[in-house]
Design a binder for these strands. Structure first.
Lengths: 237, 237
DNA sequence: CGCCTCATTGAAGAGTATCAAAAACTGTGG
DNA sequence: CCACAGTTTTTGATACTCTTCAATGAGGCG
């Protein structure tokens, strides 16, 4: 059975559950149980998956596509907190500490999600403590990232912040090519700006700067070729 | 038995375990088991409890006192990430995702800690999944705080950031007094600056500004009287 | 009381935000 | 394949805020 070529609901579910790190410790039988709990949704680009302040009652796992999690600040801007893609999950906060969603989540492209309802998820958690451990791992990783972000924002080196984001995207969707790593940017300049707390103009300026230094090369508006990743890493650290 | 007046090791341990939110769901018997796993340490002001990069193999819970968790940035400054006090814990990241400490932890005053070794803690976790849930809760809360911090740092309102810190300290160690809330600051101006990513001079200036607006009143260097908390909250939001 | 540390204040400088305009890109339809 | 319109990005000039450097002032502890 080549599940990746089967498009029935069942198999898609299984694929989804398999792909997700938090279920990686489960046996095939356990996985099957999880699959039965999952329901699916699809969203087109720009569609809101979660609205800040609403009661989200499911854990949501990204099957394919990408989303941004953001907040609207009081001065009307949006602050992007996370860019999630395949295998990432969100909504855990609403399940665990029982609070309304603290940010909006919007599809950046066509996105398919798998979701598990709160009750099902909590049952799962008590039956399989290993899932809890995986969740904790991921939460810790997220804390790690946020801590680094804060450190970066504190030490006011703007170029370093931009470099960090480029490296993050490169890790996620970078493709090795002859002259370097080609990265498809999930966010526009404005999005990047909101992600690292700058204005789009400054992001523009800094990008051209990095380009003039020979570190990157912009390919259209949505791609970047990282020509010298070592130099970029130095800029960051 | 008035345990708070008993100073034997045993009781101190128990007090410690009871105080800690992550053990709050345990029965007395279970708590007793936890108590037996705990070992204690004391640190004087300025002493390092955890060194960045070292292998921390225990979960550490603060019994009394206060600590700061910080990183040394490449440009020689320190970036404070957390101020932990009674009942807070840290070190969980090293236990869960098996990595070296990502920050230093230093006692801000005389501090007593309780600690549980990795193996003991992990056994505890499998035996009492509810502890895992509590840890997840706390991790989510921390994520929440960091997300807010990032939002604050992004929307560049410096006074708001200062206000946030003052409110945080007020919540933790504020004492209602006739004219407002008296807060003992755990950090110096420099510490506050490093906590919110500014310089000590800017913190000074903004503090005098808040004082001139009648919102706060400085009492010596280490205390602040919040005279108008509503105004302060408005500044933040 | 004096010393040392920490906090405040001032003036100059650097960097980003802001506003405005030009240029480049994306996608659509002919 | 090209042209066009809308959007996004880049570039320029100015203003504002924070940082930096330097000096003064206040607080705490022996």
């Amino acid at each position: 059975m080549i599940s990746s070529k089967c498009n029935c609901d069942r198999c898609q579910h299984e694929v989804c559950a398999r792909r997700v790190p938090i279920f990686s410790t489960l046996s095939i039988e356990e996985l099957q149980k999880v699959v039965n709990l999952i329901y699916r949704r699809s969203y087109i680009k720009g569609e809101l998956i979660v609205i800040e302040g609403s009661n989200l009652d499911s854990l949501i796992i990204i099957n394919s596509g990408q989303v941004k999690a953001y907040r609207d600040t009081q001065d009307g801007k949006e602050q992007i907190l996370y860019v999630f893609s395949e295998g990432d999950f969100f909504g855990e906060k609403n399940l665990i500490i029982n609070q309304a969603a603290t940010y909006n989540v919007e599809a950046l492209e066509e996105t398919n999600i798998c979701a598990i309802r709160k009750e099902d998820f909590q049952k799962l958690l008590t039956e399989h403590p290993s899932i809890g451990l995986k969740i904790m791992e991921e939460l810790c990783n997220r804390l790690d990232r946020l801590e680094k972000t804060i450190e970066g924002m504190g030490s006011k080196d703007v170029e370093a912040r931009l470099g960090m984001v480029l490296l993050e995207f490169a890790r996620k969707h970078g493709k090795e090519s002859g002259e370097g790593i080609l990265v498809e940017l999930p966010l526009s300049r404005e999005g990047i700006a909101s992600y690292i707390g700058l204005t789009r103009e400054t992001v523009s300026r800094k990008m051209t700067l990095l380009q003039n230094q020979g570190i990157i090369e912009m390919v259209g508006n949505k791609k970047v070729l990282i020509k010298n990743i070592k130099l970029l890493e130095q800029t960051v650290q």
